[in-house]
């Protein structure tokens, strides 16, 4: 089993403001989805959500506010899953609720050598 990092991205600025009910329904979808991966014994680490604000430090020493300005979608959170292959990890990612709100999931194999 290898480990893969799933990076959840959404375009926070252009996302329609969800109602309280929509928020709750979305939150349930996330919990059921993570629960589903855990029930398959494929969850490495549920990971974390990241707060929206942030800073970017560039090689020339400049520091800008907010997540990466050049990229429309910013990272909203991440999890680590266990899978046999990239394809299997991608299959897991296809169920991610972020996809239902216009987001995407970056799938990255985690380097085995640390």
């Amino acid at each position: 089993m290898k480990e893969y990092l799933l990076v959840y991205r959404t375009d926070f600025n252009n996302m329609p403001k969800p109602t309280a009910e929509e928020m709750q329904a979305l939150s349930k979808r996330w919990m059921d989805w993570i629960g589903s991966i855990a029930a398959q014994n494929k969850l490495g680490n549920r990971g974390n959500r990241l707060e929206v604000s942030g800073k970017v430090i560039k090689s020339d020493g400049t520091i800008t506010n907010g997540p990466y300005a050049e990229i429309k979608e910013s990272i909203g959170g991440y999890s680590i899953v266990k899978a046999e292959s990239y394809d299997a990890a991608i299959e897991l990612a296809k169920g991610c609720p972020v996809l239902t709100v216009g987001g995407n999931v970056e799938v990255r194999e985690i380097s085995q050598v640390q």
Binding site: N48, R49, L50, E51, S53, G54, K55, V56, I57, K58, S59, D60, G61, P67, Y68, I75, G77
Partner: peptide, 17 residues
């Protein structure tokens, strides 16, 4: 971070919720 020694590279800092 030594990453910043390379031109054009960056480090994004995000607080964990």
């Amino acid at each position: 971070s030594p990453v910043l020694l390379g031109e054009g590279n960056s480090v994004e800092v995000r607080k964990i919720d």
